[in-house]
Design a binder for these strands. Structure first.
Lengths: 203, 203
DNA sequence: TCGTTATCGTAATGATCATTACGGAAAAAT
DNA sequence: ATTTTTCCGTAATGATCATTACGATAACGA
C-alpha cells in the first residue's frame, strides 16, 4: 500500500547512465542527474541508494544493454572473427551518441579523488572480466586450431583490449567512425593465422 | 626588493605534476597539492595562478620532461624504429612510478564536470599535437621508402596512438611492464615494410 | 470516510571545493 | 632606523558537493 512511484525507474536509470557515460563518476553531480532524469534527489536516493550504488547499477546496465555484443562475439567460429566483431561493434558504440562518446567503463577508470577509489576498482574489475572472457575464447581457438600453437592468448587478448581502450580514448577526443575503423583494421592486419605462415619461404 | 620566496618553484611544480598524474585535474584538490608540495595555498596561487594555470604548467612540464622520448624517436631512421622506440619508452614511463601509473595526458581527457571542459580540450589538443608529429614522420618515411607506398600515415599514426592510449589505460589498471611489452610487440608484428611484401608469392 | 503507508518536492545539513582578505614577518631600499 | 615591498600562514569566503529531515500529497485497506 501507500503512494505509487510517479517515475519510471528503468528510464531514470537509463538517463543516469548517459550522464555517467559523458561525465564519469565524479564529474556527474546530483544536479546533473536530477536534470537528466527529471527526478528529484530524494526520489533517486530512495530508488537507487546513494551515488555509488546508482553508478554501479548504471555500470551493470551498461554491460547488459550496450556491451551485449561481447557474448555474441564469443560464439563466432574463429578468434579473428571474434576480434573483428568486437572491434566493429565497439567502434559503433563509441561513436553512436555524439553527446557521450567513448566507453563508460573506461571514462571513469583513470583518475579521481581518493573518495572514488572504490568505484575505480570496480571499473578495473569489470574491465578485467571482459578481458578474461576474450582470453579464454582465444585459448579455445588454439585448441580449435584457428590460432597457431605459437600464439599467446594472454597477449592477444591484452592487445585487443589495448586497441579497444585506445579507440575509446580517441572517440572521446572526437575521432570519426571512419578513422577508428581504419585503426581497427590495422590492428587486425597483424592477426596471427594458423593456416598460412607469413614467412616468404618458397616450398 | 621585498621578501624572498622560501620554496623552490620548480620542485613545487614537480610535486604538483605528480598529484595531477595520479588523480587527474578535478580529482586533485588544493589539500592534496599543499600536502604534496609543502606549500600553502596562497603561495601556490601567487606562484602559478589558479588551479587551471597550474595544471597547464604541469602538463607542459610533463611533455618536456617525461615525453622527451618523442622528439628523440622522430630522429630514428625508419618508421618502425620510431614506433618501437616510442612504445618501449611509453611503457617504461607508464610503469616507472607505482604511485602514478599511466599517462598524465590521458588520465584527464576522458571525463569530468562541465567546469573542467577547457582543461579536457587542452589535453585533447596536446594529444593531437603528438599524433600529428608522428603522422608527419610517417609521411617522411613513405618518401624515404621505408614505408610502402600503399601505407597510410594517418592510419598508422592513429593506430600507434591507440595502442599507446590502451597501454596507458592498462598501466592504470595495474598491468605489469612485461605484459605491456608483449602488447607493444604484438602491435609491431607485421609492421608494413617496403623492402619485402608479406605476400607469399614466389618470384 | 478514515488511518496507514509510501512517495513527493522543498529546503536544510555539514563537508569540501577553489579562491582570497588580511595581518605578521622578512628582506631590500632609503 | 625606517619605509617599502614582497612573501608567509591563518582563516575566512561563497559556491557546490552528496545526503537527508520534514511536511504535504496520494493511494491503498478497512
Amino acid at each position: 500500500m501507500g503512494r505509487h512511484r510517479e517515475f519510471d525507474v528503468e528510464k531514470a536509470l537509463d538517463s543516469a547512465l548517459c550522464v555517467f557515460w559523458r561525465k564519469g563518476y565524479e564529474g556527474a553531480s546530483y544536479a546533473d542527474l536530477t536534470e537528466a532524469t527529471g527526478v528529484e534527489r530524494p526520489a533517486l536516493y530512495s530508488a537507487f541508494g546513494n551515488k555509488e550504488a546508482l553508478f554501479r547499477l548504471a555500470l551493470a546496465r551498461y554491460y547488459d544493454r550496450y556491451l551485449d555484443y561481447l557474448p555474441e562475439a564469443l560464439l563466432l567460429p574463429t578468434a579473428r572473427d571474434v576480434a573483428a566483431y568486437i572491434l566493429h561493434n565497439a567502434i559503433e558504440l563509441n561513436t553512436r551518441y555524439p553527446e557521450h562518446t567513448g566507453c563508460l567503463g573506461i571514462n571513469g577508470v583513470l583518475a579521481g579523488s581518493d573518495e572514488a577509489e572504490s568505484v575505480r576498482l570496480a571499473l578495473i574489475d569489470a574491465r578485467a572480466a571482459g578481458e578474461r572472457q576474450i582470453r579464454e575464447r582465444f585459448e579455445q581457438a588454439k585448441t580449435d586450431g584457428d590460432l597457431p600453437s605459437t600464439a599467446n592468448p594472454d597477449t592477444l587478448a591484452a592487445f585487443l583490449m589495448a586497441v579497444l581502450h585506445g579507440i575509446a580514448v580517441q572517440a572521446k577526443a572526437g575521432f570519426s567512425r571512419e578513422m577508428l575503423t581504419a585503426v581497427g583494421e590495422q590492428a587486425l592486419a597483424n592477426w596471427p593465422s594458423a593456416s598460412s605462415s607469413v614467412s616468404t619461404q618458397s616450398p
